[in-house]
């Protein structure tokens, strides 16, 4: 699915990622943890193609294709989805318009016709229930006046409708109360499938109480300093991030 090989990334000439290597197989859930400033969000943004990040070395293969030359929309159409840490508010265009435009952009790239209006409504109504948002949110401006939790659930709704193959969640759990966290986790768990992979970027272990990862990676200073199973997250939770900063980079 995803093969990151010794990737180096700079922002404004400042090195942020200093050689990340990571392989995500189909169906796997990988958690990327680490202290603030470790480069977690940079990794998520580089995968989605956000402008302003300069890759100075290494490569990323997505389904065997070189991901880096692809534009953000090409990545999205190929099945890469980034759930934003700070979802953007766009008053003046409704949420449902975005969902329809995004879904049809994907369908068009696959040579499929525009989705039938009734089928679309049925699809949206079934998916919005799963994230526990009221249907009224569909007709409001994109994220306009949504609470933090509603914005994050709205990201999961978009993910559920677009059915991507690689889902990258950038601190989707931050700022959520426990109920919203559970709803987000339910949304993600409902989408888990043998051909869909997840990269969960998170600062805290608590999301992983609800979404059980296959692998946990700890990022510090732009490098993966440790990888392990779900138990690594619990260890981090117990010890904090202080101790890992002194660890050498994992071979």
């Amino acid at each position: 699915m995803l093969s990151i090989n010794d990737i180096h990334v700079q922002v404004d000439d400042k090195p942020i990622l200093k050689g990340i290597t990571l392989t995500v197989n189909p169906g796997e859930v990988h958690a990327i943890m680490g202290p603030n400033g470790s480069g977690k969000s940079t990794l998520a943004n580089v995968l989605a193609g956000r402008p302003g990040y300069t890759v100075t070395g290494g490569s990323i293969l997505y389904q065997g294709e070189d991901l880096l030359p692809m534009k953000p929309e090409e990545r999205a159409r190929a099945g890469v989805f980034l759930a934003f840490q700070y979802p953007v508010e766009i008053p003046g265009v409704s949420n449902i318009y975005l969902l329809k435009a995004a879904l049809n952009a994907l369908r068009k790239s696959r040579g499929q016709p525009e989705i039938d209006a009734m089928d679309f409504l049925t699809l949206v109504k079934s998916r919005i229930r799963a994230v526990n948002l009221d249907e009224a949110f569909l007709y409001r401006g994109i994220n306009e006046g949504f609470s933090g939790g509603e914005k994050k659930r709205n990201e999961i709704l978009q993910m559920a409708i677009l059915e991507p193959l690689l889902c990258i969640l950038d601190e989707t759990d931050s700022g959520l109360d426990i109920d919203a966290l559970k709803q987000v986790a339910d949304g993600v768990n409902g989408l888990r499938s043998p051909d869909r992979s997840f990269v969960l970027v998170t600062h805290y272990q608590r999301l992983l109480d609800y979404i059980r990862p296959d692998r946990v990676h700890v990022l510090a200073g732009g490098r993966i300093v440790r990888s392990g199973g779900p138990e690594l997250a619990l260890e981090l939770e117990a010890k904090g991030y202080g101790w890992i900063e002194h660890l050498p980079q994992e071979a």
């Binding site: 953000p72 159409r77 700070y86 766009i90 008053p91 003046g92 265009v93 790239s109």
Partner: peptide, 27 residues
Amino acid sequence: DAVFFLTARGLSEVEARTILGFAFANE
């Protein structure tokens, strides 16, 4: 950020810019 958000959902950059201009006026 808004342009990137829309392109990350599969819309072309031209389409994203048009939608954002429209959204601004549509308010």
